[in-house]
Amino acid sequence: GTVKVQGITIKVPNPDKAYKIAKKLAKKYNLTVTRKGNTIKVE
């Protein structure tokens, strides 16, 4: 899958794990995490 952070896309082998990490970071930096299948977008 991929993770998008402010325009940066990161390929990740485990979208579930990445999503959990993204959620933690999002809370810390007051961002929104959206997930569509293997693509995770943080904005």
Rank of each mutant, 00 (worst) to 15 (best):
G1R: 02
G1S: 07
G1A: 07
G1Y: 07
G1D: 05
G1F: 08
G1T: 06
T2P: 05
T2M: 13
T2G: 04
V3L: 12
V3P: 04
V3Q: 05
K4I: 15
K4R: 07
K4E: 14
V5K: 05
V5I: 13
V5A: 04
V5E: 03
Q6F: 15
Q6T: 11
Q6C: 15
G7Y: 11
I8S: 03
I8N: 01
I8P: 00
I8T: 02
I8F: 11
T9S: 09
T9P: 04
T9N: 06
I10N: 01
K11R: 13
K11G: 06
K11V: 13
K11M: 12
K11S: 12
V12G: 02
V12N: 02
V12D: 01
V12M: 06
P13E: 11
P13T: 12
P13Y: 08
N14V: 07
N14W: 13
N14E: 06
P15K: 05
P15D: 03
P15V: 15
P15E: 03
D16K: 09
D16M: 08
D16N: 10
D16R: 06
K17M: 10
K17C: 15
K17R: 09
K17H: 08
A18E: 00
A18F: 11
A18Y: 09
Y19A: 02
Y19S: 03
Y19K: 04
Y19G: 00
Y19V: 02
Y19W: 14
K20E: 14
K20T: 09
K20I: 12
K20L: 10
K20H: 12
I21Y: 09
I21A: 05
I21V: 08
I21D: 01
I21T: 04
I21W: 14
I21H: 02
A22P: 00
A22T: 04
A22W: 15
A22L: 15
A22K: 00
K23Y: 07
K23P: 00
K23L: 15
K24G: 06
K24S: 10
K24V: 10
K24H: 12
K24N: 07
L25R: 00
L25I: 08
L25Q: 00
A26Y: 11
A26C: 08
K27V: 07
K27Q: 11
K27S: 09
K27D: 06
K28T: 04
K28F: 12
K28M: 12
K28N: 07
Y29R: 01
Y29L: 09
Y29Q: 00
Y29A: 02
N30I: 06
N30C: 13
N30L: 10
L31R: 01
L31V: 10
L31E: 01
L31K: 04
T32I: 13
V33M: 02
V33E: 00
V33G: 00
V33Q: 00
T34N: 04
T34V: 08
R35G: 04
R35Q: 06
R35D: 04
R35F: 11
R35M: 11
K36L: 10
K36G: 03
K36M: 10
K36Q: 13
K36D: 13
G37W: 02
G37M: 01
G37Y: 03
N38T: 05
N38G: 02
T39P: 01
T39A: 08
T39F: 11
T39Q: 10
T39N: 09
I40M: 02
I40Y: 03
I40Q: 04
I40D: 02
I40K: 07
K41Q: 11
K41H: 13
K41P: 01
K41A: 07
V42K: 11
V42G: 02
V42Q: 04
V42A: 05
V42P: 00
V42H: 04
E43D: 05
E43N: 10
